[in-house]
Amino acid sequence: AGLEKQLAIELKVKQGAENMIQTYSNGSTKDRKLLLTAQQMLQDSKTKIDIIRMQLRRALQ
């Protein structure tokens, strides 16, 4: 149950990062740093999601 909860949280983080990227990508240059931060968050989240999914698969075997 813990892994499913972690996965749900990470999927929400990923969605939030995608929303932030959309918001900041057509903003001013001061938003550039926020855009880069959001892109890093998205990448980190995708990595965590992959790891959690692997752990889930392993647990189900």
Rank of each mutant, 00 (worst) to 15 (best):
V13I: 09
A38M: 11
L42F: 08
M41N: 00
I9H: 14
T47S: 14
T47P: 01
K33M: 04
K46D: 01
D31F: 15
L11A: 10
D50E: 10
T29C: 04
N19R: 13
R53I: 06
S28A: 11
D31P: 15
A8H: 08
R57G: 05
R53C: 07
L42I: 04
L3F: 08
D44Y: 13
I21Q: 13
M41R: 04
S28N: 10
D44L: 09
E18H: 02
A8L: 08
Q55S: 10
M54Q: 14
D50T: 02
R57H: 11
Q40F: 00
D44H: 15
G27T: 10
L56S: 03
K46C: 02
R57E: 02
M20R: 03
L11S: 12
S45T: 13
R53K: 14
Q40K: 12
Q39R: 15
T29N: 08
Y24E: 13
K48S: 00
T37Q: 10
V13Y: 01
T23S: 03
E10V: 02
V13K: 15
I51N: 15
K48C: 02
A17T: 10
Q15R: 03
A38T: 01
T47R: 15
N26K: 13
S45V: 15
Q55I: 03
K12W: 01
Q43G: 01
I9M: 11
E10C: 05
Q6V: 09
D31A: 15
L60D: 02
D50V: 02
T29K: 14
S25Q: 11
M20T: 05
E18N: 12
I21G: 14
K33G: 10
L60Q: 13
Q55G: 12
I51D: 07
V13F: 03
S28I: 04
K30D: 02
I52D: 02
I52W: 14
L11K: 15
K30W: 09
E10R: 06
M41E: 02
M54E: 09
K5G: 11
S25E: 10
N26L: 04
A38K: 00
T23I: 10
E18F: 03
K5W: 02
R57T: 04
S25H: 11
L56K: 04
D50R: 14
Q61M: 12
T37Y: 08
L42S: 00
Q40T: 04
E18W: 02
L42K: 01
I49N: 01
Q40C: 02
K48T: 02
D44Q: 13
K46M: 09
A17M: 06
Q61L: 15
I51A: 15
A38V: 10
L3R: 14
E18V: 11
L36P: 08
D44G: 11
S25M: 06
K46L: 08
D31L: 15
L36T: 13
M41K: 08
E4I: 10
Q39D: 08
R32G: 05
L35G: 01
L56M: 12
Q22N: 09
Q39K: 12
Q40A: 08
S25I: 03
K46W: 04
T29A: 11
R32M: 03
R57L: 04
K30Y: 02
Q22C: 01
A8V: 09
L34E: 05
Y24T: 13
D44I: 08
R53N: 04
R58K: 12
S28E: 05
D50G: 14
E18T: 04
S25Y: 02
A38C: 13
E10K: 10
L60K: 15
Q55C: 02
S25K: 06
E4T: 07
M20H: 10
L11N: 08
L56R: 03
E10G: 03
S45H: 01
M20P: 07
K12I: 02
Y24G: 14
Q15G: 07
L3I: 11
R53M: 11
A1F: 10
M41C: 05
Q55M: 06
D44W: 15
K33S: 10
R53G: 03
T37F: 13
N26Y: 00
D31R: 15
D44T: 14
I21C: 09
Q40V: 03
G16H: 13
G27Y: 01
G2D: 15
M20S: 06
L7F: 05
Q6P: 00
A38H: 00
Q43H: 10
K46H: 01
A59N: 10
Q40M: 09
G27Q: 07
T37E: 08
L3G: 10
A38R: 00
N19Q: 12
S28H: 10
K12Q: 06
T37A: 12
L34C: 04
S45E: 00
R57W: 12
A1D: 12
I52L: 11
Q39Y: 05
I49E: 00
T29Y: 05
Q55F: 10
I49R: 00
Q55H: 08
S45G: 09
Q39W: 12
R32F: 03
Q40Y: 00
K33L: 01
G27N: 10
Y24V: 09
Q6H: 05
R58H: 05
K33P: 02
I51L: 11
K46G: 00
Y24P: 13
A8C: 06
I52H: 09
R57Q: 10
